[in-house]
């Protein structure tokens, strides 16, 4: 299950990669329970092959595609990205996948495609957490089309050189390192090109706390977590590694232009 010939990239130079055990045992994936270790303990019921993705909406090529036909394994890259959770903890993870833009372009979105909407699998038999209330299932996320086409946006099928473990969003997930972790939707089964801003799970639940953009921004506070600093996991034995949170999680150079002229305090 490990990939051959992964192309290395320069992303993540200078960041210390979090241990595999940490990245695979401390997850927010409410489809498998609320606890951080629930996804690891309870996600073996998820069947990740065969896997299809339904591509819909404002694009020339739509339909149901096999994941293997969407991701060309011969061009996989490794990108080491910082992951910043809205709960004020963070990790550094080496993802394996392709740029999101390279995949989306193949469906030839039309000029009406202003946004891209994504959906996670809905199947309570495989995802027992969906039996409970809490979130409005299926999990939904979305991006403005220019955000989705930004070279930093990544579609991951693996991490640490191998296929994604179920608890990390197998078999395919988004990775958007300049946004809070909840934007990086897992176990994707639907991609829809749309004209208007789609509703997204967390901002449906609490619009005053979670916005559509959800860019990492130390100057916009969350009602429960200060966003000025973060705890980089794993923590030490006695002290957590508290570090300063950077604008756009340190990816300002790559993505700041997407939001030129926008009031990010309003569009959080």
């Amino acid at each position: 299950s490990s990939f051959q010939n992964i192309v290395e990239t320069s992303y993540g130079k200078g960041d210390k990669v979090s241990p595999f055990n940490v990245a695979t045992s401390y997850n927010n994936f409410y489809e498998f329970g609320y606890g951080k270790s629930d996804p690891k303990d309870r996600s073996s019921s998820l069947k990740t092959a065969p896997w299809t993705i339904s591509v819909e909406g404002e694009a020339e090529r739509t339909g149901v595609f096999d994941l293997d036909d969407i991701i060309n394994e011969s061009v996989l890259e490794e990108r080491i990205y910082r992951l910043r959770c809205v709960e004020a903890w963070s990790m550094v993870i080496p993802w394996v996948g392709v740029s999101l833009a390279s995949v989306l372009k193949r469906f030839q979105p039309t000029s009406k495609a202003k946004y891209v909407y994504f959906e996670t699998l809905y199947d309570p038999k495989q995802m027992p957490g969906q039996l409970g209330g809490g979130l409005d299932w299926p999990y939904r996320e979305g991006l403005r089309i220019d955000e989705a086409m930004n070279p930093l946006a990544f579609l991951a099928v693996g991490m640490y050189g191998s296929i994604l473990p179920n608890q990390n969003g197998a078999p395919v997930r988004l990775v958007l390192p300049w946004k809070y972790g909840f934007k990086s939707i897992k176990s994707i089964v639907k991609i829809r090109f749309v004209e208007t801003m789609p509703e997204t799970t967390w901002s449906m639940l609490a619009p005053s706390e979670y916005g559509f953009y959800a860019n990492v921004n130390p100057s916009v506070d969350h009602p429960r977590w200060s966003q000025q600093q973060e705890r980089r996991l794993p923590g030490g034995v006695l002290f957590p590694n508290v570090i300063e949170t950077k604008m756009f999680n340190g990816y300002e150079e790559e993505v700041a232009s997407l939001y030129a002229g926008m009031d990010l305090k309003r569009f959080y």
């Binding site: 241990p19 055990n21 940490v22 401390y26 903890w89 705890r231 996991l233 794993p234 923590g235 034995v237």
Partner: peptide
């Protein structure tokens, strides 16, 4: 230890 208890404080 950090490997097995990523976030002992929490």
């Amino acid at each position: 230890m950090g490997q097995y208890f990523p976030d002992p404080g929490k």
